[in-house]
Simulated scan of single mutants.
Amino acid sequence: MTLQPPLPYSASTEEYRDDEPETLDSLNRSFDEILHTTSEHYGHAVRAVHAKAHGILEGTFTVDPGLPPELAQGLFASTGTHKAYLRISTNPGDILDDAIALPRGIALKVLDVEGERLPDAEGATQDFIMVNGPVFTAPDATKFAGNLKLLAKTTDRAEGAKVAASKVLQVVNAALGAAGMESIKLAGLGGAPQVDPLGETYFSVTPFLYGAYVAKFRLRPVAPALKELTGTKVDTSGRPDALRETIREGMATIDAEWAFEVQLQRDAERQPVEDASVEWKEEDTPFLRVATLRMPRQDSWDAGRVREVDENMRFSVWTGLAAHRPLGNINRARRGAYRHSADFRAATNGCPLHEPAA
């Protein structure tokens, strides 16, 4: 099949909505409820989303040489190797027992990145935020704000009930998966399969400017030792930090390698920008490799690195180059909401967050 050429970005690519300021206010109110609840419980402020980290890794991000013009954009315009940090986490704003099987995420920070910065993007870094599923749990920011408002009411309460519910939802979702009907909503409620995060593939789920074009991103394991872990179930019985322990055990012997891939928008209807619940199908626009992320074997829960990255850094899709500006209403809402959460954490903990030097 002949692929359509990638669509160039234009002013009509995005559709701004009149209610976006109100949506941001709603998100910030929900974040405040989560942040205040958890900081009072823990005596320490944590992130409003992806609060629990399972591993902090340090390695390199190398842009592939010889990329064609449509892929040699922004950060990927010239080959080179950058220092990088990888944070593996779970999506809620409270720190839960790992028996509650929820979607996993990664935050990747690439250092020593040259080029025009996004507004208020300090330093010289590029952040990529991804989850282990190809679509977002809501089609737009308004629906997401409504979902978050409900979830905020359950923050840090009745963990035992959440564990029990998660076990039931995992069974239900496994049955649906066997019938080809696995549910994104059930996964978000605690029905995600409880598998080793090192073997997972991660997606940006929302689109971004890619120089002159529009794209989504993917991080896919390619090292054989990582691929062997794909779908491997983790026993969480009596192990509230089972994922952290599993990753630590694995990274003690694994030289991990992932392909960083780009999926270019080629059809505005099949690959919408404003509806993040629609999957961009690979048969219409394949993922293409543009870089390699390498994390050599290491202690994935080294106390010094955890303090440096988990406590003292912030991750945001709005930290990076203007050439990779986040697109769509969900990403526009994330700009203010992420900053709001990070500012609360910095002020409450009395520890300014910073972008690392090269």
Rank of each mutant, 00 (worst) to 15 (best):
V131C: 10
E274Q: 09
T285V: 12
D120A: 14
E15M: 14
G320D: 13
A225T: 00
E274W: 03
K153N: 12
N329P: 14
S300W: 06
D112N: 13
P193C: 09
V135A: 10
A174H: 09
L353S: 00
T246M: 05
A212M: 13
P6D: 08
S316E: 14
E311S: 13
V222G: 07
Q126I: 15
G180F: 02
D310I: 09
R29G: 09
S26Q: 15
T253W: 11
F61G: 09
V171M: 00
V309P: 00
G250E: 10
T37F: 03
T142Q: 14
D255S: 02
P286Q: 08
S277V: 13
A174Y: 03
F344G: 10
L108G: 05
F136G: 07
D343T: 11
A175D: 00
A256H: 03
V317H: 11
R270H: 04
F208Y: 15
D299Q: 01
Q73C: 01
E245H: 12
R104I: 04
P69S: 14
G188I: 05
L264A: 10
V222A: 07
L264Q: 11
G238P: 08
D32L: 12
A175S: 01
V131H: 10
S341M: 07
L96E: 06
R47K: 14
A357R: 02
D127W: 03
V309I: 04
L150K: 14
M130A: 10
I56N: 01
I34N: 08
A175Y: 00
S277H: 14
G123S: 04
L219E: 11
P68W: 01
S166G: 01
A152L: 02
I95N: 07
V234Q: 05
G188E: 02
G59P: 03
L288Y: 01
N312V: 14
E282I: 02
V317E: 13
D343A: 12
P21D: 10
E122T: 00
D241I: 06
A303Y: 00
V195K: 12
A215P: 12
T292W: 01
L264V: 11
E283P: 05
D120F: 13
G336T: 07
D275S: 12
D127P: 05
S316P: 15
E122G: 04
E274G: 06
E116P: 15
A11K: 06
I247F: 02
P92E: 13
P240M: 14
L111T: 09
A48C: 06
F61R: 09
K233N: 01
K227Q: 06
E33L: 15
A158S: 10
G177N: 11
D235K: 01
A179D: 11
P193Y: 06
S237F: 04
E355G: 03
W258M: 07
R334W: 09
L243M: 06
E228F: 11
E283S: 13
D302F: 00
A164P: 05
D32T: 13
Q194E: 15
M251I: 01
D302Q: 05
Q298D: 04
G191K: 14
E282V: 04
I330N: 13
F203M: 07
Q73K: 01
S316D: 14
P65A: 08
D284K: 05
T206K: 05
L111N: 07
I56C: 02
P296E: 08
G304C: 05
A252E: 00
G304N: 11
R307D: 08
T81A: 08
G160L: 12
A101S: 15
